[in-house]
Design a protein around this nucleic acid. Structure first.
Length: 277
DNA sequence: AATACTACCTGCGTGC
DNA sequence: TGCACGCAGGTAGTAT
């Protein structure tokens, strides 16, 4: 489920539920989820620490404890579920945090791609996954001029370039298609061939698309239940992603689906013309 | 250094 | 019904 808006929604939801709680133990059923430490070392390291805050950087969640942080990435399908009482984990639960009041947080992940890691709280920025991230899209550091300069340096297709989190963080396969649709840019356009006007549109589109999605509480493709237990409440309107064959909301041409850098890619062949060349 | 491809996993839908 | 195959919202590791 997670691109930046979904992770932000999870962050807010979890904050309501677990801030102030003290971890009494952690059980790990799929050791690879935990980076660097063995399940038992991870348990010993974070047990008896209290969760004071949950932050987000890009698509990473950062649980701030007394001395340490737990950096958590949901990757494709990771989910947290909170239970007020000790609850039997289902078969897709790989990590269970039990708190001193008997409540629990279950980390569930069908594909087991998600990762978590204990880190000293003063070294978060050095965590490799976080160290390489570009600016947050809503931060002033994501300014048009820098964006323009970054794009000029790469001949890569714009879509995979935006997916790799270095120029701006937070876009995934859904919102990158949406942003490119909004800016009327073909996903395979080499970044350094974009015109200043297109770059300006794209910059604006990225911020708008992500902001709108956060306001809506994220997008749900398949039905899912978030940490608070509400089934996917709002739904952002998707103009391109998953709309193959549907009329483009702008011009009515059928949305096409192609593959770009091994990812399913949706676009309007009429509004998002491929550059001749 | 930059780019491209693959691995990591499970489950679901499709077509034979 | 069964099986093979392709596909899924992401990143890290390896090869070129």
């Amino acid at each position: 489920m997670p691109e930046l808006p979904e992770v932000e929604t999870v962050r807010k939801g979890l904050s309501q539920l677990v801030i102030g709680k003290t971890i009494s133990k952690v059980e790990v059923f799929w050791p690879k989820i935990i980076e660097q430490l063995s399940p038992s070392d991870f348990n010993h390291r974070v047990s008896n620490q209290t969760i004071h805050e949950i932050k987000r950087r890009g698509k990473f969640l950062i649980f701030c404890l007394d001395q340490d942080v737990i950096i958590s990435h949901l990757r494709m399908e990771g989910k947290y579920r909170y239970f007020p009482e000790v609850t039997k984990p289902n078969k897709h639960v790989h990590v269970v945090f039990t708190f001193s009041d008997g409540s629990q947080l279950h980390y569930q992940d069908v594909r087991k791609f998600g990762r978590m890691c204990a880190y000293h709280k003063n070294h978060v920025e050095e965590y490799p996954g976080i160290a390489k991230l570009g600016p947050e899209p809503f931060n002033e550091t994501f300014d048009l001029k820098t964006f323009q300069q970054q794009l000029k340096k790469s001949s890569k297709a714009i879509k995979p370039l935006l997916l790799d989190q270095k120029i701006v963080t937070g876009l995934g396969n859904i919102y990158v298609d949406e942003a490119l649709w909004q800016a009327k840019i073909h996903p395979e356009t080499p970044a350094n061939e974009l015109k200043p006007k297109e770059i300006k549109e794209l910059h604006r589109a990225i911020i708008e698309v992500l902001d709108k999605a956060i306001q809506a509480g994220g997008t749900t493709i398949r039905s899912y239940v978030n940490a608070l237990g509400d089934a996917g409440n709002f739904q952002v309107e998707l103009n391109a992603y998953g709309q193959e064959g549907m009329p483009c909301p702008r011009c009515g041409s059928p949305i096409q689906k192609i593959k770009v850098a091994q990812r399913g890619t949706h676009f309007c062949p009429k509004c998002q013309k491929k550059r001749g060349k």
